[in-house]
Each structure stands twice: as C-alpha cells, then as structure tokens.
C-alpha cells in the first residue's frame, strides 16, 4: 500500500518532468527535465525488478545520452533574440492528438486482459541476459555492434569540423 502511494507520487513527478521537457522554453531546462524523467523511469525499472536495466538506464541515458544532448544544445545555440517560442503553430492540434492517443491506449489497456504470471524473477536474471546475448540473440547482438559502428562513423563524418 505504501509502495503504491510511492508509485503514484513518482509517476506524477515523472510525467510532470516529461511535460516540462516538451514545453520548456529554455533548451537546457528541457534537458534537465529530461534527466528527471530518465531517473523516474529508472525507479520504475527497480519496482519491476529489472535492476540491471535500472542502472543501465542511469549510465546510458543520464551519463551518456543526456550529456550528448547538452553538448549538442551548446553547439547549436541559436543567435540571441531569434528564439521565436518553443512550440510551432500546430501545437494545439498536436496536443489534442496526443491526448487522444493517450486516451486510446489507456482504453485499449483496460479492455484487453493479459494473463499475468505471478512468478518471481529468477536470481540469475543478469547471467541469463548475458547468456541470451551469445545464444538465442547472437545475431541481434552482432548487428547491434555493427549498428553502433555505423552510427559512430556516420556521426563523426557529419559532426567533424573540416579543416582546410
């Protein structure tokens, strides 16, 4: 019961932080709200007993992706006074559409009944992930490495300053 109240509090904080991300005028504030959202999501991973995912979420999203985003914000800051407002002219329509999507998804999740399997998480869940990488999911595992390689090469080519 106490944990359910905690769930609701953190859920409200996470969603509020997410809303902050999409409406904040200052991009750096948006990035900070984004970090708050990531931290909240990591809390839910802990509740779901996916501990490895929770720490990976912090390492990858807060440590790496958020830093990358902040660096990009600093690199592409717009010239002073040209900030014409955070949202574009269709924001109202998009807000209605998003609300409809959320409502539709919630409606869908209430009418569909999933068969819940109340088993405990095995103790060696992390070792099972590792085994999965090199057995069942070995092809995606290698493909991910190629994806990361291609992303690295592409991004370096795009972002490099060309010297004459």
């Amino acid at each position: 019961m106490a944990l359910q109240i905690l769930f609701l509090i953190v859920a409200i904080l996470t969603l509020g932080s997410a809303i902050g991300t999409v409406i904040a005028r200052n991009l750096f504030h948006a990035a900070l709200f984004l970090i708050g959202t990531f931290a909240g999501v990591a809390f839910f991973y802990v509740l779901l007993q996916a501990e490895f995912l929770a720490v990976s979420q912090v390492v990858v999203y807060i440590g790496a992706i958020a830093t990358l985003i902040i660096f990009a914000i600093m690199l592409t800051r717009s010239v002073m006074g040209r900030e014409a407002g955070a949202l574009n002219q269709w924001a109202g329509i998009v807000a209605v559409a998003s609300a409809l999507i959320i409502a539709a998804l919630i409606w869908l999740f209430t009418i569909v009944k999933f068969d819940v399997n109340p088993q405990p998480v095995p103790d060696d869940a992390i070792a099972q992930i590792g085994k999965g990488f090199v057995s069942t999911y070995v092809i995606p595992f290698e493909v991910v490495s190629i994806l990361l390689l291609v992303a690295l090469i592409g991004a370096i080519m795009l972002a490099r300053e060309r010297h004459q």
Partner: peptide
Amino acid sequence: ALFGIGFFGVLA
C-alpha cells in the same frame, strides 16, 4: 502517458 507526451514533443 509518457508515449503521448513524447509524441507531442516530437510534433510540436
């Protein structure tokens, strides 16, 4: 809810 908020952010 998070998906919807993200969707709003992408389009707006």
